[in-house]
Write a protein that binds this DNA or RNA. Structure first.
Lengths: 343, 343
DNA sequence: TTGTATGCGTTATCAG
DNA sequence: CTGATAACGCATACAA
């Protein structure tokens, strides 16, 4: 019954269903809504739902959102998706949001302030209910200012908690300390660090942890051993090359990023430097691949997926009008074979 | 002038700006629109835009979309974001879409038919203007059926062109052939393949290319040398273990995925098998990392970014009412040190 | 229990 | 050139 009543123009609307069902559009709206609030008779609800299904009804969330002022969409600004850790984070955000009935509007702008600001603006124009922004640049007030004017809750991820925005982060400083303490415990005293870009707060905090550990061990901090580079393999190559060409090269290198560590690995290979006997190497993130390298990499495991889950959870609290809080998740050292006693 | 006229409740609307400017809302709409179609006097346009800027106006795309039936949003269904190649693809899609004035609604459902169908449904409810779906399961009619009923252009990526949906893909079959021919040219005749999941069309087509090459060389196809596994490192471990434990193990392995190749590398290491002297290994994708491995990996370069760009370009044509066509992009072999002459 | 009326913010179509 | 009006699809307060 009511078989191919479907009007040819695709998407039937509530009104069209109402006509077929012989009721008013508002009745259909009530029947279709999950919560039985309007209290229709169950039989009628079933009948109407059946007709809607037959007609291939598909709710128009965008129209509903205009009415309710809730789009059930959250905006995610997340540069460098190709970084495995960030992809994991993004995946976790998406999955968590989806299971809470939200969808993700994604922006992956280049790692520059203006582009990021513009992405945020665009997302807000799309009436997102909340915003998760990651890897923002440090020390730019525009960011916080604009973001505060957003009118929706904004949560940062991987950003220093040094401003008013709530943040969900891993304890990068502790991670940097763990890695460095491990090397110190192995007898290394001349430890280089491939410290990533200056503007990346995660990298910066790992570097702080590195300095903490040196200081605690009474080892003087030698700035020539701290080299700032880009993330990724190329950064690792540049950083390791620089460090190994020093007059008094380090006996161990801590790369604040696994892919950079892999780059360092390549440099060591090219120079005939054996790992770990000639040089110890520690990475950061524990991407799946580094456990399978010919010399499995010692690294720091950062809970990317949990960060994503926690971020969404916090943001949803914000969307519900509650206070969002800053969350810091613990990290752990994964000891493998790329680190060994100092010569 | 007209300084802090902003009503406290954030987002001012066209109507509020109109009040301040002393004109009608529709006039403001015309003034703000990029194309000077309504032909306002330039001075008036400037004045109104100034007021809008002062008041912190932010257009509500969702309301505009309701009216214009165009959301300037494209839905992307893309499982396994954590795969580097897919992330690159996603990034390229996002970047291309953004520069064309579109935004991305992202769904990364698990690699299962039902979840993928549901994701599509959700995206359509959000009134996306078009859909890019990747890595769909083979041979499930529901997919094509539902997708056809979408009412918006749908483009597939990484999917076999064996049905009616237009697709943008790399030439995976040629890639599989290239890799295998390379090994054959090196004198290998017993070549194993870590062939990925059966349902993944990319993997499947690479396997076909592998068979093509063997056949062309007059080498009989030995099914025991074809092992299906999951993607990722674990799949590579399982596949390599299986192959190397064969009574008559292969002298070369083609992994249809770089990360699987890295897994195979780990297995070789554990068994004291040297690469390439004991075993040649070819990967697929040329993710940045594999060029920096201690033994740089020979692999096939797949143009992930170009696929993304082409996919968006095609889809936009579809959105503009033109016919979309199927695009196949060429791949190339990258010879490095993980392959050598057969013993 | 169900229909009516209204409005969400915007744009398109008319008049004027 | 600009104002008034309607409509996009839906949800809801209100009336019946």
């Amino acid at each position: 019954m009511t078989e191919v009543t479907a009007t040819m123009g695709r998407a039937p609307t509530l009104k069209e269903i109402a006509e077929v069902a012989g009721v008013h559009a508002s009745t259909v709206s009530r029947a279709l809504r999950p919560t039985r609030e309007g209290a229709l008779p169950t039989a009628e609800v079933e009948r109407i739902r059946g007709i809607a299904a037959d007609m291939g009804y598909r709710p128009n969330f965008i129209a509903a959102g205009l009415r309710t002022q809730r789009t059930h969409t959250i905006g995610v600004v997340i540069p460098r998706l190709t970084d495995g850790v960030i992809a994991t984070l993004c995946q976790a955000i998406e999955a968590t949001a989806t299971s809470a009935g939200y969808q993700i509007l994604l922006a992956t702008p280049p790692d520059e302030v203006d582009a990021q600001l513009q992405s945020i603006e665009l997302l807000l124009s799309r009436q997102v209910d909340g915003l998760i922004v990651t890897s923002l640049h440090l020390g730019r007030d525009e960011m916080a200012t604009q973001v505060r004017s957003a009118g929706v809750p904004v949560l940062t991820v991987n950003r220093a908690g040094d401003d008013a925005l709530p943040a969900v982060t891993a304890d990068d400083r502790a991670g940097g300390r763990l890695a460095t303490e491990h090397l110190i415990a192995l007898g290394h005293r001349r430890i280089g660090i491939i410290a990533g870009p200056r503007h990346a707060s995660t990298a910066w905090r790992r570097t702080l942890g590195y300095q903490d550990a040196l200081r605690a061990a009474g080892i003087p901090i030698d700035d020539s051993l701290i080299v700032h580079t880009e993330f990724e393999v190329e950064g690792g190559i540049a950083g390791a090359t620089h460090l190994l060409e020093l007059p008094d090269p380090p006996t161990a290198i801590f790369a604040v990023n696994d892919t950079a560590a892999v780059g360092a690995l390549g440099v060591a290979r090219d120079r005939g430097i054996r790992i770990p006997s000639d040089l110890s190497l520690v990475g950061y993130n524990d991407i799946p691949l580094v456990g399978q390298l010919p010399v499995p990499l010692t690294t720091v495991r950062s809970p990317a997926a949990q960060i994503g889950e926690a971020a969404v959870a916090e943001l949803l609290r914000g969307i519900d009008g509650e206070e969002m809080s800053t969350v810091t998740l613990p990290v752990s050292l994964v000891e493998r074979q790329s680190t060994g006693p100092a010569r």
